[in-house]
Amino acid sequence: MDEDRALMASNASKVVQFPRKDGVSDALQRIALEHGPALRRFVGARLSAHPDHEDVVQETFLRVARQEDVEEKLSRSLDSVRSYLFSIATNVIRDSYRKAVTRQKYDDLTRDRARARGLESSAEEVVSAQEQLGNVKAAIMRLSPECRDAFVLNRFGGLSYREVADTMNVSVSMVEKHIMRALAEIRRRVDRDQ
């Protein structure tokens, strides 16, 4: 516990240095300072079982730096910037996961161990992922209107909870209730078909 705290404290005070070019680094210093702690917390919670948090944080900052309209994006309100950073971090995590899975499969194949099983399971996985996605979509389409609007505005409209709340004229805690409800319905639908 105390160790965790010390670790968190040391993470929080870390300021990432970026190469100076085109004034982009200024913007990055700013986000690292303003959003670094929240991003590290987010990555820590997403990757609770894996140790490579800092790599993900750095890669997220680098991807943000490569965006063309970085200044415009960063000048938006606190929760919109966070929402944006977290979606990029999520992509980084998914990409590195996919790479790891591919590498694992490749290793299995070259070791000539369970070759057939490896191929089979990958074909199964593709089908199962597509089926799951179909179920996720079906679940979303069947949500109550309020709940569905809150979920799609956040998940596909790129609005933060606060922006969804303002748009729908409800409280932020109400938006969170809608999101939780949507997650529950998606999970129920996917589980039913497995």
Partner: peptide, 25 residues
């Protein structure tokens, strides 16, 4: 499941729902 739902971002029905929600709200 949360991550997976992100893959629906290019889906026509989902895009229509999102536009509809923005318009209505």
């Amino acid at each position: 499941l949360w991550d997976l739902s992100g893959d629906l971002v290019g889906d026509k029905d989902i895009a229509a729902l999102t536009r509809g929600a923005l318009r209505a709200r």
